[in-house]
């Protein structure tokens, strides 16, 4: 039986578009489950008999069908809100329907014995930045001192103790949960990693409302985006100090700073691989700082982070191609249940 790749994402996922095109060139064309069209555009029937699940999905517009036993690999890409045929479900019906759909989706996924990139349990376990810092330090990374507190006096003490400036970072949402509220309720769009200066002193009293995360502002020679796919390391050197807009946070893409392929020292490369694999992940996107003294400082790992922007800027890092290959190989090498 030919195994196929199941891609769980949404209909506007460009990563999935590009990897799907490369997968179609192989013997195992992917089946794409766009959650923002699910269940509207899909028929689903799952049956449990003789100790195992059967049945599958059909994408109604194309007629493409996927049987459970055909799934050899799953690429968990992006989440999205489910969509129903009627756009007029009452709030309570909608809440109930969302709960049922989540249960159905994960009942199907968790029952699979296949290659994962990456299993949702591994992703969930790898998602907590505070735990990441501890694990990274234990694995030998240089990790900045950090504080999470709602005590103003502890912020002040931390700030005095750091050798230099201090930055504030959001832990959960750099877009300040703007996507969680209706447009009319939106009062802010985003907050980059921000340098805290004496001028911000009065604002710091507000930490009493919500514990906040601070780190020293680590001096940078440049930054690294290290993307782990399977057993391969794709490292990009980001010249973030070349433009004032990206000195503190390199995510301001209006600054056309140089990205280039980088070969990591062997020990750093191995440590990045080990870090990602330690969670059971087959994918991770690690952000590192390289200091002027050459130290590699761990910032965070994104267990389902984006990689296309790196490939677009450094085409030599063929991550879409390698993702297609590892998914295809993973699917092909699975045995039937």
């Amino acid at each position: 039986m030919a195994k196929r790749v199941l891609i769980v994402t949404h209909s506007f996922d460009l990563h999935a578009d590009l990897v799907s095109a490369k997968l179609k060139a192989t013997a195992s064309p992917p089946f794409r489950l766009n959650l923002d069209d699910f269940p509207t555009a899909f028929d689903i029937t799952l049956t449990f008999a003789d100790g195992q699940w059967g049945g599958g999905l059909t994408h109604r517009p194309t007629g493409d069908s996927l049987r459970i036993e055909e799934i050899g690999a799953v690429w968990m890409r992006q989440k999205a809100d489910f969509r129903y045929r009627s756009g007029e479900l009452s709030p309570q019906e909608k809440a109930y329907a969302d709960g049922e759909m989540e249960h159905i989706l994960f009942s199907m996924l968790y029952a699979l014995d296949c290659f994962w990139m990456s299993h949702p349990l591994a992703v969930r376990g790898a998602s907590w930045k505070g735990e990441q810092l501890l694990r990274a330090a234990r694995m030998g990374f240089d990790v900045p001192s950090s504080i999470i507190t709602n005590r103003r006096t502890d912020v002040d003490r931390f700030r005095r103790a750091v050798d230099g400036d201090m930055v504030f970072k959001t832990l959960s949402s750099p877009i300040l949960a703007a996507d969680e509220v209706a447009a009319e309720d939106r009062i802010a769009s985003h907050l980059s990693t921000t340098l805290i200066t004496d001028d911000d002193d009065a604002l710091l009293d507000a930490v009493v409302e919500l514990p906040s995360f601070f780190q020293p502002n680590v001096p940078k020679a440049h930054e690294l985006r290290v993307t782990i796919i399977g057993d391969r390391v794709f490292a990009a050197k980001i010249h973030s100090q070349a433009d004032p807009r990206t000195v503190i946070d390199c995510r301001d893409m209006s600054a056309e700073i140089l990205y280039e392929a980088e070969t990591l020292p062997a020990d750093i490369s191995c440590r990045c691989l080990d870090f990602v694999h330690s969670y059971g992940l087959t994918y991770g996107a690690i952000d590192l700082i390289v200091t002027p003294e050459g130290r590699h400082v761990f910032l965070e790992n994104n267990p389902v982070g984006q990689f296309l922007f790196v490939e677009q800027l450094v085409p030599a890092l063929d991550m879409t191609g390698y993702t297609a290959r590892i998914l295809s190989d993973g699917a092909r090498n699975r045995r039937a249940l």
Partner: peptide, 27 residues
Amino acid sequence: KTFAFKLAEKKQSGLKDGKWTARAGVA
């Protein structure tokens, strides 16, 4: 009320209609 929102407001990065800037051809 929260430090993050006060800071975003002060830095003018948290405008309600603010957009993340783009780089041609790059998401």
